[in-house]
Amino acid sequence: MSVVTGLRPKSPAERLLATNSWLVFAFFYAPIVVLVVFSFNANENVGIWTEPSLRWYREVFRDEAVMGALRNSLIVAAISTTVATILGTMAALALERFRFRGQRVYDGLLYLPIIIPEVTMAVMLLLFFAQGFQWLDGAIGWSPTFGIGTISLSHIAFNISFVTVVVRARLGQLDPRLEEAAADLYATRWQAFRGITLPLILPGVAGGALLALTLSLDDVVITNFVAGPGSTTLPVYVFGLVRRGVTPLINAVSVIMLAASMVLVAVSFGFQRGSRGRVPESMAEDG
């Protein structure tokens, strides 16, 4: 496709556009580059460069608090991504492929956790768990505590919505005739879902899962509210350190977290590429 900008090449406006773009990209990446460079600084003092070293990375892996928080993060991410992906995909299917009572309310309800401010959601869940635990204790003498369980339950609550949105977008692009064609060719509802719908929305489901994973691994605000003593996640632990100041150890942890994000981006692009299907080899009519 040819692109017409309505601007002659190398006009002043065009040059201005290009300059702006490269400035924005510099703005995007300069802090990251600085952070990465400083994470290899041997000096105790962040601001003073002495020599390149892996010292702080070794420290990270020796730091028990960081490792414990990382372990918690991974557990929470695994649980919340799995549950949210299943529930969110089911919700998307129900919304896109069925008509049922209360559908509009359901639709709205699913958008709420996305729209609602994180802080509000954090407050809601904190009060809910506190009140609920108090009530459980009084009712059946069981008093659970804040910890990995409450964090996971909270992460699922916001992740369902994000998975639903992503899977719905994919389902919306899927020609409903394909499912009819499967039924026409003797497939039962379940066979049509397993054989046609699921494989075709899989990139969307994977995309939703990746988004859920990222959100779970990134969340600070909500986790901060529903974490218990000794059960904080890596971002919450790092957040606590960051508020106190800048240290070379945080630099190293941050770069590791960034690297993890990059891997996720790469994986997500891989999925998107795979979903686009094979490139047509020949469009020639030979019959």
């Binding site: 990251i32 962040v46 990134d218 971002p235 800048v246 977290m257």
Partner: peptide, 13 residues
């Protein structure tokens, strides 16, 4: 897609 906390921290540095 990058970690929001880390990106904010970079500016503190």
């Amino acid at each position: 897609w990058s970690n929001f906390l880390v990106r904010t921290y970079a500016w503190k540095v």
